[in-house]
């Protein structure tokens, strides 16, 4: 039992070094694991959209046939068209209204401004399902009222559909656009606007020639966010649409509730590609803003 003499007593500094090196390794490991967790599902999903097997997830060979099945499917194409229509129209309306709201909030002082500022954040904070069901109630009451008032029934009656979906998407996107545009309004020098006005430009000319060119990247950033959120939305669309207004997320939801199939993998891959395009465009806009 002579080993007692050779027991190693590390100093505090050595313990600290040991902890630090292990801490660094753990940090690195956590980073690698996190990204594997985030990306493995997406990579697997895309890979198996090229799998030549109808059943399950066993690799049987490469094929493009599921993409063929997808593009020959009437309801998928129709849903894709509906999604794009809703996203484009709601983005245009929300971007215009959001930019106007941002200008009013950043360049004017008015009573209740603080309260309105708070209200603008609510559509972002409120869970989407609550907003969805409240709009469902509201549209049921509103459309019922309109149909009774104008004596519309049968074919002519107004029903929930793409119109109500667009209205709902604008309602949550105004807030997002406002926030993004306000950031770019805050970031530029107000003296430029003042100089223009001193030189005799009125508010409109100042806006057209000075403010707008400076905040255009911010407006585009807000529009891109609105477009993405609109394309992505399932819950609010689910509660505000009717049988005539099925969007791509609704179509996909109906299918994935039932089962997994390589065809859904193919549709998902196309949706991922759409997202990638949006990411690249948004990165470019971001660069431009800086």
């Amino acid at each position: 039992m002579t080993t007692t003499t050779s027991v190693f007593y590390p100093s505090t500094a050595q313990i600290d070094d040991l902890l630090l090196s292990w801490g660094k390794r753990l940090l690195w490991l956590n980073m690698v694991m996190s990204f594997l967790f985030l990306y493995i599902p997406i990579v697997v999903l895309v890979a198996f959209s090229f799998n030549d097997s109808r059943l399950g997830a066993r690799w049987e060979g490469f094929t493009l046939k599921w993409y063929g099945v997808m593009v020959s499917n009437e309801s998928v194409l129709n849903a894709l068209w509906n999604s794009l229509l809703v996203a484009v129209v709601s983005t245009i309306i929300a971007t215009i209204l959001g930019t106007m709201t941002a200008l009013a909030m950043e360049r004017f002082r008015f009573p209740m401004r603080k309260a309105y500022d708070g209200l603008l954040y609510l559509p972002i904070i409120i869970p989407d399902i609550v907003m969805g069901v409240s709009l469902l109630l509201f549209f049921a009451l509103l459309l019922n009222g309109i149909n009774t008032l104008f004596g519309l029934h049968g074919e002519n009656a107004w029903r929930p559909g793409l119109g109500t979906v667009i209205i709902a998407h604008v309602a949550f996107n105004i807030s997002f656009v406002t926030i993004v545009v306000r950031t770019s309004l805050k970031n530029f020098n107000k003296s430029l606007e003042e100089a223009a006005q001193d030189l005799g430009a009125n508010e409109w000319i100042t806006f057209r020639r000075v403010t707008l060119p400076l905040i255009i990247p911010g407006i585009l950033g807000g529009a891109l966010l609105a477009f993405t959120l609109s394309l992505d939305d399932f819950v609010i669309t689910f509660f505000t649409t009717g049988p005539s207004g099925i969007t791509l997320p609704l179509e996909v939801f109906g299918r994935i509730k039932r089962a997994i199939s390589p065809e859904i993998n193919a549709i998902s891959t196309v949706m991922l590609l759409m997202s990638m395009v949006l990411i690249i465009v948004s990165q470019l806009v971001q660069k431009w803003r800086e």
Partner: peptide, 17 residues
Amino acid sequence: IPFWTNFLVRIYAWKFI
């Protein structure tokens, strides 16, 4: 990237696994 990609697609990926 996951933040910008479609929500349903990401959930379906886990169902697939």
